[in-house]
């Protein structure tokens, strides 16, 4: 496997400077030994694949390797854009993520609500219970969804039948897929997502609340005018981070929930990369789609960051 070229700072500019650096290096050479395993890891498992991304512009043959395979330019990209499933994949990916993004306020509401509780057992248990689902694996969560929504003997359909309805086959329905996917995610991550806001709320200056009380503000008014402005920077930074993961969120779960009947609603770019690349062996084509995906991601992250910088003083860099 070829290694990508690592940037070497041009240290050899002047003899004296070289000696100085050599001396400094020898004095703390052990620190560089500490760095070595991590750097090797990043080079081999992150930078070599980045170098390997060039197969997106080639026709990769296993026998010829990344370097030896012939160039084809943008062929794979064009084939992808022209395919009938391109729009379906893009729209599904966007819709699922927009749906999730629209529910962004939920953990904030939970945090504001828990924050209003007096210290005590109820407060502690509200946190322990709402954090718990975070520790359940996606496989088990999807397993629970499958069990609960089973058309013959699942809990939900038992209830629907008991109140006189017709059982619904949720799992094979394209209409239901996105709702099930997003709301089971809310169930799993709601409490966990609130942790950061709770910490930010704990840092709100109590004097602000006292002053507001003196002015006769109600609880709701104090939440609105004191608490929310106080955690706004946290909210913005997390929004940017979410946007940065925009195209990537939860494809492993999508893959588990996918079946041939709900594909029209559940096939997203990432699962398509997995299927065409690893199951069908179209390495170059899949790598091109993957590259397209991460390009959108970077553009979104950078744009959001610029936007946040301009409109407020909060940004990632």
């Amino acid at each position: 496997m070829e290694l990508s070229r690592v940037q070497v700072p041009s240290t050899v500019r002047r003899e004296t400077r070289f000696h100085k650096i050599k001396k400094r290096f020898l004095k703390s050479w052990q620190l560089y030994v500490f760095l070595l395993p991590a750097l090797l890891y990043f080079i081999i498992y992150h930078y070599v694949p980045m170098y390997g991304v060039q197969i997106a512009f080639k026709d990769y043959f296993v026998t010829q390797g990344v370097w030896g395979s012939p160039w084809v330019g943008f062929d794979h990209f064009l084939r992808f854009f022209d395919s009938y499933y391109f729009w379906r994949l893009l729209i599904n990916t966007l819709l699922i993520n927009l749906y999730q993004l629209a529910l962004f306020p939920l953990p904030i509401i939970l945090a504001l609500s828990i924050n209003e509780l007096r210290l005590g057992v109820f407060k502690k248990w509200s946190q322990t219970i709402t954090y718990a689902p975070h520790f359940i694996s996606v496989v088990v969560v999807v397993g629970m969804i499958v069990a609960f929504l089973d058309p013959q003997n699942g809990l939900i359909n038992n209830i629907i039948v008991a109140v006189g309805g017709e059982p619904i086959d949720f799992l094979t329905s394209p209409v239901w897929f996105k709702h099930i996917f997003v709301w089971s995610g809310v169930w799993q991550q709601l409490g966990w997502g609130a942790i950061i806001y709770l910490a930010a709320l704990a840092g709100v200056n109590p004097e602000l609340h006292e002053a507001a009380k003196v002015d006769g503000a109600t609880r709701l008014q104090r939440i609105w005018h004191v608490n929310i402005p106080a955690i706004l920077p946290t909210i913005i930074v997390l929004l940017i981070l979410n946007m940065g993961n925009f195209m990537a969120i939860g494809f492993e779960k999508v893959l588990l929930m996918q079946n041939s009947l709900n594909l029209s609603s559940s096939s997203v770019i990432q699962t398509f990369v997995y299927k065409s690349g690893l199951l069908e062996g179209q390495y170059s084509f899949a790598a091109a789609i993957g590259l397209f995906d991460s390009m959108i991601n970077i553009i979104l992250l950078v744009t959001m960051n610029q936007l946040a910088k301009k409109t407020s003083d909060n940004s990632l860099w």
């Binding site: 070599v48 694949p49 980045m50 390997g52 991460s294």
Partner: peptide
């Protein structure tokens, strides 16, 4: 590496 990665296929090939 937080901002950009090779993606599933190139990583798999490595």
């Amino acid at each position: 590496t937080m901002l950009f990665n090779g993606g599933l296929i190139p990583t798999y090939l490595v």
